[in-house]
């Protein structure tokens, strides 16, 4: 028996929230009632409800914001000083709400609420942390058939190069902190694949890591 469905009241004009029993499904308002289309996944990046922007006085001065009285906003921001921010909410490109306020969280390093915007983080050179050098020998690497080392690497230091038969993995020497995880997890038990300090096989080191 099909369970009864109901839609939640929501101010979101793009998505609707459909409750079936205890499950909440989120779907586009346009597609309400339709079954999901099979085939090529749509690129929804542009369609997604964008979050509000919080702009500094320099950013507003550089690029006027459409749909609002930028001059008035700028003068209000100038009254407050360098802590002034302009909040603009443009869910569909048009400003529906904007507000000038004094940001109590002025520290440039820490975002509002200690939220870290992941893509803005710059990679750091951690090569000084490691005591051994790691290198993947492309002769031994299975390429895109395997990819286990890239998955397990905690620092995302291992990247796939190439496609198909000729593909192989590569370790970013700046990002590798020498944790041995790829070496332990390698499906080929690192035999002629991951070289540690130029050596493919070191009984002493194996004993240390595998307890053999």
């Amino acid at each position: 028996m099909k369970e009864e469905q109901r839609t939640l009241v929501s101010p979101n004009r793009h998505k609707e929230f459909v409750v079936t029993g205890e499950l909440v499904e989120i779907r586009d308002r346009a597609h309400a009632g339709e079954t999901e289309k099979k085939g090529q996944p749509e690129d929804k990046t542009g369609k997604r409800l964008s979050p509000p922007e919080i702009l500094t006085i320099e950013e507003v001065a550089r690029q006027p914001v459409d749909g609002i009285d930028t001059a008035k906003a700028l003068s209000a921001m100038a009254d407050i000083g360098p802590e002034a921010r302009l909040f603009v909410y443009r869910p569909e490109g048009q400003a529906v709400r904007y507000e000038v306020f004094e940001d109590p969280r002025v520290c440039p390093e820490v975002h509002r609420g200690a939220v870290i915007e992941n893509l803005k983080e710059k990679p750091r050179d951690v090569s000084g942390w490691r005591t051994h050098d790691f290198f993947i020998d492309l002769k031994g690497c299975l390429g895109d058939e395997c990819g286990r080392c890239a998955i397990v690497c905690p620092e995302n230091a291992i990247h796939l190069r190439g496609k198909g038969k000729g593909s192989f993995h590569e370790i970013d020497p700046l990002a590798c902190k020498g944790c041995f995880i790829c070496w332990v997890e390698c499906v080929r038990t690192a035999a002629d694949c991951i070289l540690v300090d130029g050596k493919t096989f070191d009984p002493g080191m194996r004993a240390k890591h595998f307890g053999e």
Partner: peptide, 30 residues
């Protein structure tokens, strides 16, 4: 109005990240 989108792969964010003393003390003051 949420300040960050829910599930936005093109702009991922971390909530409750670990901070060392320098940014921590500044955040607490804020």
């Amino acid at each position: 109005v949420p300040l960050y989108s829910l599930f936005a792969p093109e702009k991922p964010v971390t909530y409750g990240a670990m901070l060392s003393a320098y940014p921590y003390r500044r955040h607490k003051r804020n």
